[in-house]
């Protein structure tokens, strides 16, 4: 092999490696950006709650559970129909989720709930002329504590407190990683672009890297959806189940979007390469 041939092969290997690194960096950057736009986004969580009908279902479930408590407490179902309608679940849930993302106290405020319930029971006792002997304060307190516990369990999202802990801890490192990967992608692309003498070769190596990145990113949602694992999650309530499935379906939708962006860029680079290549042959 001639010296120029060897040189060409080494150069090809170096640029091939740079293309691979570009693909790898783009793959990691896509994952980080998907996490940023979904897992680490308060708006995404709130949108998922709204889109999956979470608020309405939590309200129904809370009403159902309180009615069950009412069966053990001598309160009719109608009492809770009226009472739960007055509770603004949307506001309570929004405050609950916001608290995690803003790292403030995440305890659900039960004071308002307790006060409203106590007021509603007192009104009910007066309306029905119930003997005060049959509604002892001690039992009322016991009932309100039980109802309050049901309320807290209904409005809190299972495992969210654990996940939110990671969200708060990993927010800054993720931001630094995104910046680092973005810079690395730009530097690698710049090296490929500015160190190649021939214009068409610049686009060829960029196409390899973007193509590799596209395939790697698209594999993730394909594997997840093909395995069908998301709808098989074991969650006790319908509201949580729907929220989980809706949340992760939307999350993996972002992988499709990022892979589509990478595919578009790869195709664009390929056509520029073809144009430049044909021009170079013509010259």
């Amino acid at each position: 092999m001639s010296d120029s041939g060897k040189k060409f092969n080494i150069k090809s290997l170096i640029y091939g490696f740079l293309s691979f690194m570009l693909g790898f960096v783009l793959f990691l950057l896509s994952i980080c950006l998907v996490l940023r736009l979904t897992f680490f986004s308060q708006d995404f969580m709130l949108d998922s709650m709204a889109n999956t009908g979470y608020y309405e279902m939590v309200k129904d479930e809370l009403c159902d559970k309180l009615k069950n408590l009412g069966h053990a407490s001598g309160l009719p179902d109608e009492f809770f129909d009226d009472f739960v309608d007055d509770i603004d679940i949307v506001e309570v849930e929004r405050n609950y989720v916001s608290a995690f993302y803003t790292d403030v106290s995440t305890l659900v405020d039960t004071d308002t709930f307790k006060q409203e319930l106590m007021d509603a029971i007192n009104v009910y006792i007066d309306e029905k002329n119930i003997d005060k002997e049959k509604a002892k304060e001690e039992n009322l307190g016991y009932f309100i504590d039980e109802a309050s516990s049901i309320y807290v369990k209904s409005v809190t999202v299972s495992f969210f407190s654990i996940l939110a802990n990671y969200i708060n801890k990993l927010d800054s490192p993720l931001r630094m990683t995104e910046i680092g990967l973005g810079a690395a992608a730009l530097i690698i692309a710049a090296i490929i672009f500015f160190t190649n003498r021939y214009v068409h070769r610049r686009y060829r190596y960029l196409t390899y890297g973007l193509g590799g990145g596209f395939l790697s990113v698209i594999v993730i949602p394909i594997v997840v959806f093909a395995s069908g694992i998301i709808p098989k999650v074991n969650l006790t309530t319908r509201s949580l189940y729907n929220l989980f499935v809706g949340y992760f379906n939307s999350m993996f939708m972002y992988f499709w979007i990022f892979s589509a962006i990478l595919l578009f860029l790869a195709v664009l680079c390929f056509f520029v390469y073809r144009t430049k290549y044909l021009k170079a042959i013509g010259d």
């Binding site: 693909g23 790898f24 390899y208 395939l215 790697s216 390929f270």
Partner: peptide, 18 residues
């Protein structure tokens, strides 16, 4: 063919390393 083969090889390597 490199436009198909190399991205596929890159993809396999990226996923294997990950």
């Amino acid at each position: 063919m490199n436009f198909i083969i190399l991205p596929v090889i890159f993809c396999i390597l990226i996923l294997a390393i990950s």
